[in-house]
């Protein structure tokens, strides 16, 4: 009796607040050594409405199941690439995933609208300092600029592109305490995405998702 009441109220809140389904595609080729991405992934797994997929676990030989992955995309509203930044881009399997899954006729090309209106962004960790990712910095480009191919990929597929959620100086993050802060922000961000409380239009213009976590959550 009591249980069914709870179920009923859950149902009610579902009805009143449109829940979004979030898909995280993690690419980390050596997860057993990971200090940032592993805890982020673990935390995401526990959140209702979030599907967290470890691509290297599922496709250790890179034989990606195209049908399965396309179905996954259809089943979700928010797509996140989670990865450590390798040579200013994703680890190899995420590139392979794009090459295979985002087929002509499925997500781009004539009458292909499978991904239209879905939200897309990258959650990444980088070894360099935040200051290095500036036009006058060591890496000469901002992180958002470096991810331009992703932005254009999203655009060609008709998706709403958000700036990256990034952690810099990731090698020292657990000692400096930045990891804890990042994890807390990650939680807030994912919950807000599930509850559809993110002001997409405002966020789109930013350089990074991080600094604005508190602002992006609409006051109820």
């Amino acid at each position: 009796m009591f249980k069914s009441i709870i179920q009923l109220t859950n149902l009610k809140s579902d009805l009143f607040m449109a829940k979004k389904k979030v898909l995280i595609l993690l690419a980390h080729p050596s997860l057993h050594r990971s200090a940032v991405n592993a805890p982020l992934f673990k935390q995401a797994q526990k959140i209702n409405g979030v599907t967290a997929v470890d691509l290297y676990y599922e496709y250790p030989t890179f034989h990606i199941d195209i049908d399965k992955e396309q179905q996954r995309l259809l089943d979700h509203d928010v797509i996140i690439f989670q990865f450590p930044l390798y040579w200013y881009s994703t680890p190899a399997i995420l590139k392979e995933w794009q090459d295979l899954v985002l087929e002509y006729g499925f997500s781009y090309g004539e009458d292909a609208t499978a991904l239209h209106g879905k939200t897309f962004f990258c959650s990444l960790s980088a070894g360099g300092k935040a200051e290095a990712y500036q036009s006058d910095g060591y890496n000469h480009f901002t992180i958002r600029e470096l991810l331009n191919p992703m932005e254009q990929m999203a655009s060609l597929n008709g998706m709403i592109y958000l700036p990256p959620f990034a952690l810099f100086e990731s090698r020292a993050a657990s000692e400096t305490g930045h990891l804890q802060q990042h994890l807390a922000q990650w939680q807030i961000l994912l919950e807000a995405l599930v509850d559809d409380r993110v002001d997409l239009r405002r966020v789109q213009k930013l350089q990074k998702l991080n600094q604005y976590i508190d602002d992006i959550i609409k006051k109820d």
């Binding site: 990606i64 195209i66 090459d99 295979l100 087929e103 002509y104 781009y108 090309g109 004539e110």
Partner: peptide, 14 residues
């Protein structure tokens, strides 16, 4: 060979 499918030949024109 399903993977790595290029877009059709007239893709650029379209």
């Amino acid at each position: 060979e399903r993977g790595w499918t290029p877009p059709p030949k007239d893709y650029a024109d379209k």
